[in-house]
């Protein structure tokens, strides 16, 4: 059988009273407010994305720098260069003598303070500060308290021999260097690492204290590293401001000096 479809009603709407000017104004304002909305919400979103992507990139770039420092120090190689692109901020190298953070190490009459120096990225648009300090990568927010460790140094405790081995990596630079954009960090390790090999029969306590720069404080990051289980199961014991590992028969400190050339 045949079905006759009804005709569209729109064809019979009477549009004689419609003004073209008003129609144009309505359409135009819809377009303008559409563009406005995109500018208002979309643009900051894109910008935010750009900043956070820069910061994440720099975090990974710092891991790259740390990997080259590891190659330089742990594999006893004289030179390594890192080519990188510093985006959305700037990269600084501070000689150890210009920085105030330090590690105090005590063991069975042995006493030492160690200043690590730093390679630091400071974000312009965002708040992130990412720092290579004593073989670790630590990060904090410019306006906030607290800090976290992105990559750990390789300190370890061997419980077969009750040996505690720590690596102290010092950044040396003839001047404070600065890098923005694509550049090269020339790193070298030309003097042999100094090894301090201490032992005490029956075991003794190793005490480590980290003093942060009040304006650039990573004590929370180091606290989590020391008390976490990456050095030894159960971590070091926090006593006051210092961290203690008991019953260490042999304590080895390996000191590396990494010299950064002009960038």
């Amino acid at each position: 059988m045949d079905i006759t479809l009804p005709e569209f009603k729109s064809e019979i709407i009477d549009d004689r009273a419609v003004s073209e000017a008003i129609g144009f104004i309505i359409l135009f304002s819809i377009v303008i407010s559409g563009i406005g909305l995109v500018m208002l919400y979309g643009y900051p979103m894109l910008l935010e994305g750009q900043i956070s992507s820069d910061e994440r990139n720099m975090e990974q770039m710092m891991i790259n720098v740390q990997n080259d420092i590891k190659l330089l120090t742990y594999s006893n190689v004289p030179y390594r260069d890192v080519v990188l692109n510093v985006a959305g901020g700037s990269l600084w190298v501070h000689d150890f003598s210009d920085t105030s953070q330090l590690f105090k190490i005590t063991y069975n009459g042995y006493n030492d303070t160690f200043q690590p120096g730093e390679i630091q990225y400071i974000s312009d648009g965002g708040n992130a500060v990412i720092t290579v300090e004593n073989g670790a990568i630590v990060t904090r927010q410019q306006n906030g308290e607290g800090s976290t460790m992105v990559a750990k140094p390789r300190w370890f405790y061997d419980d077969d021999t009750d040996t505690f081995v720590i690596f102290l990596t010092r950044i040396k630079a003839a001047d404070t260097y600065f890098l923005d954009g694509v550049g090269n960090i020339p790193m070298s390790m030309l003097d042999a690492p100094e090894v301090t090999d201490l032992s005490s029969a029956g075991g003794n306590d190793v005490t480590i204290e980290y003093t942060g720069d009040p304006n650039d404080d990573y004590s929370k990051a180091w606290e989590n590293y020391f008390t976490g289980s990456s050095i030894v199961d159960g971590g070091l014991t926090k006593t006051g401001d210092s961290y203690v590992l008991s019953n260490v028969d042999r304590f080895v400190i390996k000191r590396y000096n990494v010299t950064i050339g002009r960038m």
Binding site: S52, S53, N57, Q60, M61, N64, V82, V83, L84
Partner: peptide, 8 residues
């Protein structure tokens, strides 16, 4: 834009 452009 959210993706990183890594030079190294």
């Amino acid at each position: 834009l959210n993706t990183g452009f890594m030079y190294a």
